[in-house]
Simulated scan of single mutants.
Amino acid sequence: MQEFYRIIGSATEEQRQNLAQLTGSAFGDSPETLCNHIRYLRAGSIGQLFWNNSWKQVVTDVADHIGIDWSATLNGRNWHDLETQEIEATVVSKLFQNMLEQLSPEQQQQIVMEMARDANDPDIANLLVGGSAMAVAKMSGFGVYLLASTVLGGLTNTLGITLPFAVYMGMSQTIAFILGPIGWVALTGGILFTINQPNWNRLANAIVYISILRYLPSSG
Rank of each mutant, 00 (worst) to 15 (best):
A204K: 06
N75S: 15
P181F: 12
W70C: 14
Q107V: 03
Y215V: 13
V129H: 07
F177Y: 04
M99V: 10
S219E: 09
A125G: 10
A148D: 00
D69C: 03
A43F: 05
S10C: 11
R77K: 14
L127Q: 06
R214D: 05
H37R: 03
Q48T: 15
K94W: 08
Q85W: 14
T73R: 09
G170W: 01
N120R: 07
A186G: 02
Q21A: 15
I7M: 04
M139C: 11
R42A: 09
D29E: 15
M113Q: 10
Y209N: 00
T60F: 08
L159M: 10
S71K: 15
Q108V: 03
D69M: 07
H37N: 07
A206C: 14
Y215K: 02
Q85D: 12
S93M: 12
L100M: 12
S54Y: 09
G160L: 14
F27E: 11
G170E: 01
N201H: 13
I195W: 00
I46Q: 03
E32D: 08
S71P: 11
I210W: 00
R39M: 06
E101R: 13
F4D: 05
Q57S: 03
F177L: 05
E83Y: 02
I178E: 00
K138P: 02
D118R: 06
P181L: 07
